[in-house]
Design a protein around this nucleic acid. Structure first.
Lengths: 208, 208
DNA sequence: GTCTATATAATGATAGAC
DNA sequence: GTCTATCATTATATAGAC
């Protein structure tokens, strides 16, 4: 009976942080053991191998993140509110657990990893599917243009959030950018631009 | 006088491919030497250390990619054409040299890497700056709404392209997505959605 | 379950012959 | 400049005492 964490959990937590920061190849079992304040042998005792440890980290991360994303998409109201809420909450999920996000994103987006076998792909895929469903719904209600591809629009919104998270450090060094830390201003702008467009209306809408 | 490649170049090419695919920690000097058909010692003779080899790869990649991006932004015409051309050519640059793109993007976006010291950040930054300049130009001409942030819009367009490239493998496994391999259809949709918006015009534009 | 000690392979890097 | 042979160090993983 420990305060709140047994050894296996300590190891899992340490591994999660380290793998998230440096990737699988950048982390040694010795480092994980040090950070978890246990011996190397203890790590192998609990998880068998470095690969199995990594899989355990991924499995827990996927489940945890899936749970976070589970609440998304349940909103009602008009399109603007539904989308705005979805995108804002989606970005909040990502920033709420940055280690999990980095871990799962790397697994899905890195060229070396095999996407088809990865559970991480399911996590990103499920939020995308939900958003696509919302947009298909709105398309039937004719609130968005009939020539709009709901999947492509959903993909763009997810992309905007994911890239914003990924490039967080980068954009803090860019003088042109002043929305770096302002998540809600960013998501609002994304939704607004995509819904209304950025073109000035000189009386003439989309047209063709 | 060799046909077209001396040993140092062979090594650099092999290292570029491998680092792009597996990252710095995922590649050993032995592997680079094997792929370049030289001995390990030869690698150290030409580049001094693994770190210096990596830096040499990054340096060449940055210069090469910067040259590719150099042609962007020179287009004239209306906003739609300028943007459409820029975004399409930008994506073409990325896909033209996938190894360079992976290499530089990892350097900029990975949490473990130090952004401020990296030349790779300058490459991504310069294309962003160019696109921002184009949009600031158009804002003065009042072709885009005064409340639009040119930097944020430019960022979104770059994000759309970069994420499309990054998630290439992933989206091929998604049944909802049918624009996976169609780069020009994708960029056209991105530009159109952002310029015109996706909302149906029931007679009422942006409003307020 | 925890540890120390160890086995074995691979790592980055060097020495020195040719 | 090229290589083989070798160095010291670290890697993953195991053995076995407590």
């Amino acid at each position: 009976m420990q305060q709140s964490s047994d050894a296996a959990d300590n190891i899992l937590n340490a591994a999660e942080q380290l793998f998230a920061l440096k990737g699988y190849d950048g982390v040694s079992v010795r480092l994980v053991a040090e950070q978890a304040c246990v011996s190397k042998a203890s790590v192998f005792h609990h998880f068998g191998s470095k690969e199995l440890l990594y899989e355990a980290v991924l499995k827990r991360a996927s489940a945890e993140f899936e749970a976070l994303l589970g609440r998304l998409g349940g909103n009602t109201g008009n399109l603007r509110d539904r989308l705005s809420t979805f995108v804002k909450e989606h970005l909040t999920c990502i920033y709420d657990k940055p280690s999990l996000s980095h871990l799962l994103l790397r697994e899905v987006l890195e060229p070396g990893s095999d996407v088809s076998y990865t559970k991480a792909a399911g996590v990103l895929g499920s939020s995308f599917a939900k958003l696509t469903a919302v947009l298909r719904d709105e398309k039937q209600s004719q609130t968005i243009k009939p020539e709009t591809d709901p999947a492509l629009l959903a993909y763009l919104l997810i992309a905007a959030n994911v890239f914003f998270f990924q490039s967080q450090k980068f954009i803090q060094h860019m003088s042109e950018i002043d929305f770096a830390g302002d998540n809600s201003r960013y998501t609002e702008a994304v939704v607004t631009y995509l819904l209304d467009g950025v073109l000035s209306h000189s009386g003439v809408p989309a047209d063709h």
